[in-house]
Write a protein that binds this DNA or RNA. Structure first.
Lengths: 338, 338
DNA sequence: TGTTATCATGGGAGCGTTCCCATGGCAAGG
DNA sequence: CCTTGCCATGGGAACGCTCCCATGATAACA
């Protein structure tokens, strides 16, 4: 099995404590001793036992990452993989590890207990929590540090990392209006998710700015899947919008399918814009105008924030908004105007 | 913080040991005592400390999952999310947890040590290991149970779960040939990955079966990304193939872009087939003929196999091949023949 | 009724760490 | 030369749990 501290100690001719000091870079160890211990540890390929250390010190350097499986978009949208990559990347830098939970409803109870009670993780990142997710209360009561990815309705008391969804959407829709579109429809995300809600609010705000009456028929709720975007667009087509703002690229792709299937052209007959700027967005036909959000940085920042929260307990909740960028491509018809 | 065994013991008026017996469902505990302890534990929301248990019993019920980040396809291909979902799903059923490592080259050394030495995980699933991945030797030497997803060249000594890539590809290409195509090209995966190699071998085997001479010019190596498929197809187009077998759906999508861009039609001018049957495959234009592999079951089986290996140390390596299914859609021109 | 087996329960030891305190050596200062 | 204090080092205790053995009570049997 694994080598232990005592083994190293024996071979280096020192005590357990001294080895521990060397491993943890404590001062007050003789240079020669330090070198000798290092050598032995290296040669035996020593690696401290995380469980034991965790027990002793009450800190495991493991972060939990919980992704609600109700987000069925997990499969079709590269959002989550990129997010995960950002998180693990930062964890590597900060010398932490990641424990992953995809919370299926039927195991939710068990998982919540495990996450909260196991004493295995120092804190947890919750990706795309629903507004009313019961885990949030439990987390709060338990005192376990946590960070949300995506704003929460109880915004002030919890830490979260998000992009400025409302503002970005508002800009996107304002841009569509400036291009001369009159009937701008939207395919929203689920309204019980922060991103879904905020992007929708950006849409209404943009209309309001221009004194354009809000038409509820031009709003269809999607679910962040391509299929959902496709079906939503089918419902919108008979109403004759001249532009549609989809709350995610993958839904925009679905919408474009529906539009093409109806024999219409993008952007000549219908401008389409998305949100996320996933890699695919640059390669659709026509390429998709969208909002770029720094997904990877979002994950990295969440991890960084959580670690900071763990290191400094009792500080104020951290609220971070990352900026987005409008990516103008052909699908919105910007080129046609020239 | 978290409640401990002793706390429960105190409140229930029994000893630490008895509580432990109740929690672990050992026999030889009085019914009444058992009930009383259960009640107290429930009311205090007790959850055993995994680190402590792991220390004591030498088993954490945590599985490691390592995905090499060199697989850049992680971002565009839903393969990994679905795989992960299969793994976590089975872990839920089997009451295990998952620790995730996306192994970036620059942290490889640290990670390998952590995975091997930490004593934190009972075993590890390696997804899409490269043929010569150094971690495999280390794993073997260390004696930590592990399961590969994707066949390894040292096939007999290690456990793996895979689909029968060679056979499936052979069938797919044989089908293309039966449809009357004469110059069938292929876009392979990286040749240092099992899936890349096996699917290519299936291609050559199918040609061989039909006594069709192998033309190395009709083989271009891709990297399992859409971009890679696109570029590979651009290189193939001047050679005038009448069909192309891409080793993944996402590369097939890229290839179709290149074909359309060149003003050719699928399947009239060029038959295209993929591999994986990702959700997108049914919704491309035209819908993609492909090989369905049970990605989720692949992950679930890997987890199940690993847990079995952990439970019964010293048994033979497990080698599992899951079956695939040919999904005939429009992109191969099957309909044209009627 | 005496002997033995069975069962419910308690307490010690140990898993591999870290932290704290004790110890002894040695240099600095008076 | 003696005191003070720093520094390198060692060992005990604790983290929360499981396992093993001991104990006493009760049941089973002769």
């Amino acid at each position: 099995m694994s080598t232990t501290l005592v083994e190293i100690a024996k071979q280096a001719g020192v005590s357990r404590s001294t080895v521990s000091r060397v491993i943890n870079n404590h001062p007050n160890v003789d240079q020669a001793t330090r070198a000798r211990v290092r050598l032995v540890a290296e040669s035996l390929n020593y690696q401290p036992n995380i469980a034991a250390r965790g027990l002793a010190v009450g800190r495991t350097r493991i972060l939990g990452l919980a992704i609600p499986m109700v987000v069925s978009a997990l499969f079709s949208d590269p959002y989550f993989p990129i997010l995960i990559q950002g998180i693990t990347s930062m964890c590597n830098v900060m010398d932490h590890s990641v424990m992953l939970w995809l919370t299926e409803p039927e195991y939710e109870r068990r998982m919540v207990r495990q996450i909260l009670g196991g004493g295995m993780i120092d804190g947890v990142i919750i990706a795309s929590a629903l507004m009313n997710d019961p885990i949030l209360d439990a987390l709060d009561k338990r005192g376990l540090p946590f960070v949300l990815i995506g704003r929460h309705i109880a915004g002030d008391s919890v830490s979260y990392v998000d992009v400025d969804n409302k503002n970005a959407s508002q800009e996107m829709v304002a841009y569509l209006l400036r291009l001369g579109n009159r009937r701008v429809a939207t395919i929203t995300g689920p309204r019980n998710m922060g991103a879904g809600l905020d992007r929708f609010e950006g849409y209404t705000a943009a209309l309001h700015d221009r004194r354009i009456p809000f038409d509820p028929d031009l709003v269809v709720e999607g679910d962040f899947t391509e299929e959902g975007g496709y079906r939503a667009m089918q419902r919108l087509l008979p109403l004759g919008p001249d532009a549609v703002f989809a709350a995610s690229d993958i839904m925009a792709v679905g919408a474009m399918h529906a539009i093409h299937e109806a024999g219409l052209r993008v952007p000549e007959d219908m401008a389409v814009t998305g949100f996320d700027d996933i890699p695919l967005a640059a390669r659709t036909n026509p390429p998709l105008t969208t909002v770029r959000q720094p997904i990877q940085r979002l994950g990295a920042t969440a991890a960084e924030t959580l670690i900071d929260l763990i290191d400094h307990p009792g500080t104020q909740p951290h609220r971070v908004l990352l900026t987005t960028e409008l990516i103008i491509r052909a699908s919105c018809g910007a080129a046609l105007r020239r």
